[in-house]
Design a protein around this nucleic acid. Structure first.
Lengths: 140, 140
DNA sequence: CTAAGTGCAAAATGTTTGCATACTT
DNA sequence: AAGTATGCAAACATTTTGCACTTAG
């Protein structure tokens, strides 16, 4: 469980830089692999997985598990502490599998409503809306 | 994607019966396997997975993914037909595992909002809100 | 009779682990 | 020098798939 990293290595810098650069976007372990490959500075997948785990542990990135058979997604959330405010939702298309990332004020109200009226403290990080995305509604 | 079952088979009956019996409890694909084995009427694992998928598709059971490396959990939520207007949401407590059913007008608006503003057609049967229930907020 | 369901074993997937080597401090 | 980090390949666990066979309607 205690997987925090202690040394500053080239691999960690590259990985963290990439994640930071992709702030607000979902990134899979494989995306990182690909990126590194294309950069010439390839990083072993075990190293990538190990760092991703550390970073989640350290609270620098978040991990989202959308579906059993899709790869987990990671997202940079920063090294600063995040107080309240930040509410982010995910929509998963049941047809094409696309993952849509929503930062929306109206949706923030859901969290408030659930808590006030239903005494349910929503974990918006983990909650995923299933449905059909725009593209798939057309191509039916 | 259209995996609804059309025939009534012995295997489906056994599986559904077991799930119904375990209402309110988490059940993994493996649990079903074990149960069947112990009942003498063993069912192939592919059949189990295929039925579980159908049942999720039909909205009779819900699927919960807790962690990438743990098996998915399933839970019976009922066979009643939900008419078009009926929007029903489920809240799952991350601590005690309790499943809460919500019929709420405010929540209906979410569906409308997602469609109007994000062009996303929500499947409310399949969407689960994760969070912490009232009881578990107190006992922390 | 036909379409759907079954079950086995093999494949696929995403992730983790063992271990020898290389790097940080 | 000592403790970490790395990377490969092999191991893992869960879930899916191909295919021949059976069964429900």
């Amino acid at each position: 469980m205690n997987t925090r990293s202690k040394y500053k290595t080239k691999q960690r810098e590259i990985l963290l830089g990439y994640l930071k650069d992709k702030s607000g976007v979902h990134v899979t372990a494989n995306d990182v692999c690909e990126y590194c490959k294309n950069q010439g500075s390839s990083i072993g997948q075990s190293t990538i997985y190990r760092h991703l785990e550390s970073l989640v542990d350290e609270g620098i990135i978040n991990k989202y598990i959308i579906d059993a058979n899709s790869p987990a997604c990671f997202e940079y959330v920063g090294e600063e502490v995040h107080e309240d405010g930040e509410v982010c939702f995910h929509c998963k298309c049941e047809k094409c599998g696309k993952l849509i990332h929503l930062h929306c004020d109206v949706l923030k109200d859901i969290k408030y409503h659930l808590f006030e009226d239903h005494k349910f403290e929503l974990n918006s990080m983990r909650t995923v809306f299933y449905g059909v995305c725009e593209d798939c509604q057309i191509h039916t």
